[in-house]
Structure formats: C-alpha cells, structure tokens
Amino acid sequence: MGRPRGDNAMEKNLIRADRTALAPYTAWAALFIVVPLAFVAYYAFTDASFNFTFENISRFFTATTQTASEDGSVREIRTYIVIFMRSLKLAAISTAVCLVMGYPIAYIMARSDARVQKTLMTVIMIPMWMNFLIRTYAWITILQDTGLINRLLSAVGLSPVHIIGTQTAVVVGMVYDYLPYMILPLYSVMAKMDVKLLEAAQDLGCSGLGVLRRVIWPLSVPGVINGITMVLIPSISTFYISQKLGDGKFFLIGDAIEGQYTANNLHFAAAIAFILMILLLICMGVMRWLTDKKRGGLA
C-alpha cells in the first residue's frame, strides 16, 4: 500500500532475480520429487526383468481371496479393492474426527492473544518432534486392556473397555498423529480473518452461531480443504499404526505396500503406490473443482 508508482518495473526485475537465485533449488527439488516418482512409475509398469507390463496394475484390481463369512459360506472378494476401501473408510473417519476436533482448537488459538497463541502452537507441535513408532507404542500402553485408561476406569469403579485391537484404537492413533496437520492450515486462515467482519455480522443481526455459519465457516473453507488434504492423504496410506493398535486385524493399503516391499515384490508394491497416488489425485481434483464451483456461483 502506498507504494509510489513506477516501481513496477523494478519489482519485475526483482522477481526475475529471485527466479535466478532459485534455480539451484528448483533443480534440487526436481531431483528429489520427480526422480523418485518416475522410478515408482517405472517399477509399476515393469516385471522382474524390467519388461513393460500391465500385470502389476491389473493384479491390484483382480486379485481375489477366499473368506469365510459369518454364516460359514465361503465368499470370494477382491483383495486389494477391499483393503483400499477399508483404508479409505478409516482415513475418512480419522479426517472427520480431526476436523471436528481441530476446528474449534484452531479458532480458539487464532482468537487468543499472542502469548497464548505461541504456547498452544508449541504444545501442538511437540508430538511431531517425537518418533512416530514411539508415539504408537505410547498409545498401546494407554489403550491396552491393562493400560492407563482401563486402570483409571477401574479406579473410579467403572467397568473396563476393550479398545486395543478395534477400529477405534486405529482411529485414535491416526487422529493423534495427524491432528496437527489439520490444525495448522485452519489456524492460518483463521488468524488472517478480519475481526471486523465478525463484528459486522453481529451488528447485522447474527448471534454467535449465525456468525460461525454465515461468516467464519465460509471464509475458512480454503483452510478446511487444505486440512482435509493434509490429513486424508497420509492417513490413507499409513502403515504400522493399524498393525500395532489394531492387533493386525485391519490390514490397510499402506501395510500392503510395506508387505509387498519386504517380500521383495518391488514391482507390485510400486504398482499399489502408483494406483493410490492416482486415486488421491482424482479425489483432490474433484474436491477442488467442487469448491471452486461453489465459489464461482457465489461471487
């Protein structure tokens, strides 16, 4: 604001200078992002002797397993489709829980004074500095049948709950791991929100809930989208959490990739990763398109 005119040319020069300065970084980023991706694709479409094949891709969609259902009859299911759907379900639940928990936290954080903001930020970041295996083990000791929760429950005379080895335990683990990735983007849009807009809404007749529904929520949508992206993607491909907290009962797509990899089926592992990536890209594309469309309709 208030910048004298005629500075534009200089600014452009500056940007150009910036680009030149960034060139080594760009090369570096290309090396570390594009090259591994290219290798994943290469492995996904080749067999053990590196001849081109669709075999790995089609195996993902067609491989079947026999399972016994409750009435004793044996059914045939598409192994990886089922695993993928299960991963998607757990990831979606975790993302939803993260959103419901993260939204008010981010809001309170954005509206408190600078010192409180800093403290809360640190508290939220601390778990991220801890190794994630350690975090998962910590949750085992909290959730197991003789763990912290059940000891607390029996101390106050309540009956114990069985959590470890259930989907709930897996969701708890994922939420704990990924909640910061939901809070941070939400916090960043909310901190930028002009308090005057909230006052204007009140002035024009909105109660607290009305302000939330008509102003805060629509203005925070970009943060919500970013948050969902940041949580959904890693939680869909997570591994290990489910093995440990779910007692290995909920085999997820991440575990499948890890399993194939450790069994030295590099090409099939790459194919699963590749398909996962494409599906996520499609998901994100649809989500952005939907929100852009909503925006366009309003503005």
């Binding site: 005057k196 807009l197 204007a200 809404a201 109660s207 009305g210 102003v215 203005l219 309003l298």
Partner: peptide, 27 residues
C-alpha cells in the same frame, strides 16, 4: 450487539469478501 436496533458503518467498511454485492446488502 445483534439484538440492538442500531447498525454500524465500519471504518474500513468490513464487507464480506465471500459474498457478492447483492448478498452483502441482503445479509
């Protein structure tokens, strides 16, 4: 504030950026 029969024109207008002109006025 929301129950007072008083309205404010704010110092820097505070128009809602996510709404068009019609919806701002209709708010």
């Amino acid at each position: 504030a929301y129950k007072r029969n008083v309205n404010t024109v704010f110092q820097r207008y505070a128009l809602f950026p996510h709404l068009n002109i019609f919806e701002n006025i209709a708010f």
